[in-house]
Design a protein around this nucleic acid. Structure first.
Lengths: 251, 251
DNA sequence: AGTTTCGAAACTTTCGAAACTTTCGAAAAA
DNA sequence: TTTTTCGAAAGTTTCGAAAGTTTCGAAACT
């Protein structure tokens, strides 16, 4: 179970201020970079992940790569077959639908609980992270990749902040994993979508800060569902079938 | 995302009949054995996992162990701190409660969907796996470890069979992970519990085969809740606090 | 022409050792 | 007596190379 956002805790301050970030050093760093690359489709769905190329790209050894890849497999961002190496996980509309249904439940559940246990520090982080998200504005199709990536980061930070005070570690853990899964589809939507959406995050923020649990949950539910619908209609090639991979049998 | 029970599929029969089981060979085998050892508390909660001992126990290299341990961390069965190696995940009543709340929802959700999409092969596997579970009978405190382990296997097989035709891969995946988590607490209950329970699995089986979704869901919900209550009252030392690990600060 | 067999090339998996970090205990200083 | 410092031992992390598979194409055979 990966570390969850560690928000209103006193920093331990043993060696350096950002000591927390050091975690696992090399391996952890490679893992994070690979995850980001899969999420942003730099490594494309169903792409074969050969050790030769990866070693060059991330400047590390086979063993370290294996460990990172192994992690990605458990997270559902990659798959592996015995003796055939690793592959980026497929995407499909069916998967996004399935994913999103679970998300609706987990997001509303964690959000309601977080609101129930909200603190001043929690409110502050929501205000702060919303500010950062809003300052950047929703990225357009023709914005540079760097801007889109930064928006992705801030978007995640805002949504993490909303549920930070939820008291169920398991719910938070799975919520986080599924949020990352959804980010792959969000990325595709950002690339292709033409329609613009109103600023749903502002309403969400205000409902949460007003501790209006029902309204906040309804908003986040429609937030998720709208995104699915948008992806389904505007991302080309996102079909119900999983992959164009060559697993045919002869008739 | 790990492989899910692959039930009504035709065997591919390329080399051997059990070719499917070979998956990942060495690493996968070590992973499975370690997981089983953690689930059955052979490796105890909060126990330090040193490479020296593990290498001897599983007769494998450091690299392979690291990969397996890495997997266990993502599954929440172990934890790791930078530079300080791996540790078996803690247990606590709080964790079991949290876990079980999520399980209630996931089990009922997957079960209802599985019933909706049930096939003949699905019914057959339910009948078969129930037969195996029932033949062994609920293990008593003084049964040998081997019997308890076998019961654990058959118990899991039965519950997997119930939900096998569920159409949501993500729900099935998380259901499976949480079921394994719960197995650690089940094991402790088996060791310590004095009270006997009626055969809840028979009622469950019949309700499912009769396609009575509401009744089946109600049964599985109380099945889970009863187990939690039993563990809370009969397993000594299962407190709300996480671990007796030495993370004290000076006052 | 179509199918099968064989062998080399490419890639994955596994391993043990080298480099580095943490922990623990003994000796020196307060 | 208590605290601090230092160094050795134990343990973890990273790496590159050896061993083992799979894949693909060319030659041999039907």
């Amino acid at each position: 179970m990966a570390r969850i956002l560690q928000m209103p805790s006193t920093p331990t301050a043993t060696t350096a201020p950002q000591d927390v970030l050091r975690e696992e050093a090399a391996t952890f760093d490679v893992l994070r970079r690979m995850r980001e690359d899969i999420l942003c489709c730099v490594l494309k769905p169903d792409q074969r992940l050969r050790f030769g190329e990866l070693r060059q790209r991330y400047d590390t050894s086979v063993g370290t790569l294996r460990e990172a890849l192994s992690h990605l497999v458990s997270e559902g961002l990659a798959r592996t077959e015995a003796g055939r190496g690793f592959t980026v996980a497929s995407i499909s509309l069916a998967d996004f639908l399935d994913l999103s249904e679970l998300r609706v439940w987990l997001e509303t559940r964690t959000l309601a609980d977080a609101i129930r246990h909200g603190t001043d520090a929690w409110e502050a982080e929501i205000v702060g992270s919303y500010f950062l998200l809003n300052k950047l504005g929703a990225p357009r199709q023709d914005d540079p990749v760097g801007v889109k990536r930064e928006w992705g980061k801030r978007h995640k930070r805002f949504h993490d902040a909303l549920v930070a005070t939820c008291t169920s570690p398991w719910s938070l853990h799975y919520r986080s994993e599924l949020f990352d899964q959804a980010r792959r589809y969000h990325w595709l939507t950002m690339i292709h979508a033409r329609s613009r959406r109103k600023n749903e995050h502002l309403d969400l923020r205000d409902a949460v800060l007003a501790r209006d649990s029902d309204k906040a949950c309804a908003l986040i539910e429609s937030h998720i569902r709208t995104t699915v619908a948008q992806a389904a209609s505007e991302v080309p090639g996102l079909t119900m079938d999983a992959a164009p991979s060559a697993r045919r049998r002869k008739a």
